[in-house]
Structures are given as C-alpha cells and as structure tokens.
C-alpha cells in the first residue's frame, strides 16, 4: 500500500471516528463525569505550560519587533503588532501545539496501552462502546478547553509583551495598552476562537485514532504516540494556513 492510499485511509478512519463520537455524544448513557474529568486533565492540567509559553512568546515578540518599529518611528504600534500576532496566529497555533505534545501524546499512549493489554476488548466484551466511553469525552473536553486555553495564552502573551515593552524599552503601559485596544477587532477575536475549536477536533480525533489502532505491544504504543504527536502537529499547522485564508474571506478581514 503506497503512502497516498495509506494517508487517505487514515483520513477516512479519523473522520469516521469523529462522526461516530459526535453521534454517540447524544445517546445514553452520557458519560458526563468522564468528560468533566478529561476537561480537568486537559484544561486545568495544561494551564501552567500554556501560561508560561504565552508569556514568553508575547515577551519575545516585543523584544524582536520593537527595535524595527522604532527604526520606522512606529514603536507606539508595538502593542498592536503583539496583540494581533497572538490573537490571530500564535495564540491558537502555539496552544494547539503545546496541547498536542502534552495531551495528544497522553491520550494516544493511554488508549494504546489499553489496546495492547486487551482492556478495550474487555470493555467491548462487557457491553461498553469504547468510542462513547473513551473517545467522545476526550474530543468534547478538547473542544471546550482549547478555546479557553487559547484565550488565556493570548491574554498572558499580551501581558508578557507589555512587561518587556515597559521594563526593557521604557514604553508607558498606557501607550502599549491603547495600541492593543485600537489594534484588535471583534473579528480577530472570533477568528482566534474558531481556530482552536477546529484544532481541538483534529488533536482529539488523531490522538484517539492512533491510540486505538495500536499494534505490536509496548513498542507499538511508543510508535502510535510519536505518530499521533507528529501527525497532529503537522495537520494543525497545515489546516491553520487554510483556515486563516477562509477566515479572511468569511470575516472579511484585510488580506492585503
């Protein structure tokens, strides 16, 4: 089987898994406690690394762009540039990549271990649908928590940019904040929240599918975990490009 057919098959299987999970989400028994547990593990558990990443990303954006903007006499626009970069692109993508590394790998490894130790078979033998019990709550949890984590990353990133601008470059916090406020539109924020919704589905479905497809014992678990993180990261970045273009058209954002 060549790589193109294999990739197409994977896309098909992942899409089917999402469709199955979506259908089972509304059937009884609803696994609400499982979904809430996953939201805690995925959302609350990822918050520290998201805040840390967001803060330093905002800081380094200011660090790199302020001198250039100053050269053109536009240093007042630093807040605008930092906020726009974070809300439109870096916030959603960086959060998605961090969550892929932390949560996507954990989901894939957990489900993969359950497959090789026959726990998934045992679950089915005991009359429970693993898609409903394991996949649907995880995708739902990512769908709810990823936009929230992204907003947290955006806010702390802007704060980090402001800290660097005021402490290292002597910019007043009022100037920085006003350029942030004038720079970002409502559409930017909406676009920045739509993206993580899509990324949440991508990360959840790829990680769950790779985990459930695990073959070959503990070595297989390692393989499926690596594959889940690599595939989800690449898909997030590629989809981000097309999503950015689609949002420009849909939300009528300036494309040039």
């Amino acid at each position: 089987m060549n790589i193109a057919i294999r990739s197409l098959l994977e896309v098909q299987e992942t899409t089917l898994l999402v469709a199955q999970a979506a259908r089972r989400l509304f059937r009884r028994p609803a696994y609400i406690p499982e979904a809430i547990t996953q939201m805690d593990v995925i959302g609350v558990g990822s918050l520290p690394i998201i805040l840390l990443t967001g803060f330093f990303t905002g800081g380094v954006l200011t660090l790199q762009t302020f001198p250039t903007l100053k050269y053109y006499g536009a240093q007042d626009q630093t807040g605008y540039l930092v906020a726009l970069s974070l809300v439109r692109e870096l916030g959603p993508v960086l959060t998605a990549l961090m969550v892929t590394g932390r949560v996507g790998s954990a989901i894939s490894a957990e489900l993969g271990s359950m497959v090789v130790s026959q726990q998934i078979d045992a679950m089915r033998a005991l009359g429970t649908d693993p898609v409903r019990k394991l996949v649907a709550p995880r995708i739902l949890a990512l769908l709810v928590t990823l936009p929230l984590l992204t907003v947290a990353a955006d806010v702390i990133g802007i704060f980090g940019g402001g800290v660097v601008a005021t402490t290292l470059y002597g910019m007043s916090s009022g100037t920085f904040l006003s350029s942030v406020r004038y720079g970002i539109t409502f559409d930017d924020i909406i676009g920045g929240i739509i993206k993580p919704l899509i990324f949440g589905i991508i990360i959840g479905s790829i990680a769950c599918n790779k985990g459930l497809q695990t073959e070959g014992g503990t070595v297989g678990v390692g393989r499926s975990t690596t594959s889940a993180v690599v595939t989800a990261s690449i898909v997030v970045i590629v989809v981000d490009f097309f999503l950015a273009k689609a949002l420009q058209v849909i939300l009528d954002m300036p494309a040039s």
């Binding site: 726990q119 078979d121 045992a122 009359g127």
Partner: peptide, 19 residues
C-alpha cells in the same frame, strides 16, 4: 452485538483489568 454480549462473560489471558 452489545446486547448479545450481555449474556457472555469473558476472561482474558492477563485478566485485562482496568488499571
């Protein structure tokens, strides 16, 4: 099959207990 499985009990090689 979920309904049929209710009348079965299965004991796996290593127990397959939920960790």
């Amino acid at each position: 099959m979920m309904k049929v499985r209710k009348s079965f009990g299965m004991i796996f090689q290593e127990g397959a207990l939920f960790d």
